[in-house]
């Protein structure tokens, strides 16, 4: 549904997005993660033809966004952080206005969508009287009006209270379940992404630092849960063999790269230590994300240290 190939965007001397390639297959809920200024909104802007890429190609629903924007966006709905409306007009009038930029929309269809998002009865009130949650529903309604196949959600829970966030999460699940939409979700809320997405892409300073399934993020950790007869002897033995780089809580060891659990078991058994239990620790997305960011920070610091001239 979405295909970005080597897309970059520079604003003057600042690179907002750097050679980003990603692919969102049909039917996925795809999470776009990254800290503020990582380039998520710029990437979304480029997907919607609002921001011109400096280089690269973007295809939405099989059409090039740069040359066939109208075809590409025909079946796309989008919601942005803090959705903006014409506050002095009614919710219904806002929906009529926004939907008319896609196609002529029947009053029946508007009523149907208004009911679907739970805004029934308030659609004729002026938007300035709406609560934050109601504005979020109106934003969803406008995104759903063109019968989209792809929904792009840029921080949809931004500014919502905990109930609103919960409701938005349920709604996204409903969208996938009932309407079978493909969804690109850009969010800061890692637990939201963890609960909703099947695949994620992490951006850091405009560049992609990870892309994969949530399953992969859970398994990518080097920490292993270990239950042995003699913990201290086991640690001594594993450290002596150079198989682990650290340990914590009397239960977890961190394997050095290229070592797997079978090698740990062999080393422990050879040392005469009983192994009761050994299993890779399932990382939460938060642990994974923070680890990834720390790693990138270390990588950048390392590079800058290497690059720095050595004092005589």
């Amino acid at each position: 549904m979405i295909e970005l190939k080597d897309v970059s965007k520079r604003f003057g001397s600042r690179t907002a997005v750097d050679a980003l390639s990603l692919r969102v297959p049909h039917g996925e809920i795809y999470g776009l993660l990254g800290r503020n200024g990582a380039g998520k909104s710029t990437a979304i802007g480029m997907m919607l033809g609002q921001v011109w890429p400096t280089k690269g190609s973007l295809r939405i629903c099989g059409h090039c966004v740069l040359t066939q924007r109208q075809m590409a966006l025909r079946k796309v709905g989008a919601i942005f952080e803090s959705p903006a409306f014409y506050d002095y007009l009614s919710g219904r009038r806002n929906l009529e206005i926004l939907s008319s930029y896609t196609e002529r929309t029947e009053a029946r269809r508007i009523a149907e969508v208004v009911d679907w998002v739970g805004l029934g009865g308030r659609e004729n009130s002026k938007v300035r009287t709406y609560s934050h949650g109601m504005r979020a529903r109106l934003a969803l309604a406008q995104a759903l009006l063109p019968n989209p196949e792809l929904l792009i959600l840029d921080e949809p829970s931004d500014g919502l209270d905990p109930e609103g966030i919960h409701e938005m999460r349920l709604t996204i699940q409903r969208l996938k379940r009932e309407l079978g939409l493909t969804i690109l979700l850009s969010s800061h809320l890692l637990n939201e992404v963890e609960q909703l997405c099947t695949r994620i892409c992490v951006l850091n300073k405009g560049a992609k630092v990870f892309e994969g399934t949530l399953e992969e993020t859970r398994r990518s950790g080097r920490w292993v849960h270990l239950v042995v007869g003699d913990w201290f002897k086991a640690i001594q033995s594993l450290e002596g063999a150079g198989l682990i780089s650290g340990h914590r809580d009397g239960r977890f060891v961190s394997m050095v790269p290229d070592v797997d659990t079978s090698q740990l078991v062999c080393a422990l058994v050879s040392a005469g230590i009983k192994v009761h239990e050994i299993a890779p620790e399932e990382e939460s997305l938060e642990t994974f994300y923070l680890g990834l960011m720390e790693e990138r920070q270390g990588h950048v610091s390392g590079e800058s240290t290497q690059a720095a001239p050595t004092p005589n």
Binding site: L48, R69, Q70, L73, F80, A84, F85, L98, Y101, T102
Partner: peptide, 17 residues
Amino acid sequence: DGTLRMILARPVSRFRL
């Protein structure tokens, strides 16, 4: 206000708008 971004998320050409 941000409404321009809402409009330009739709398949309307900038010139037409």
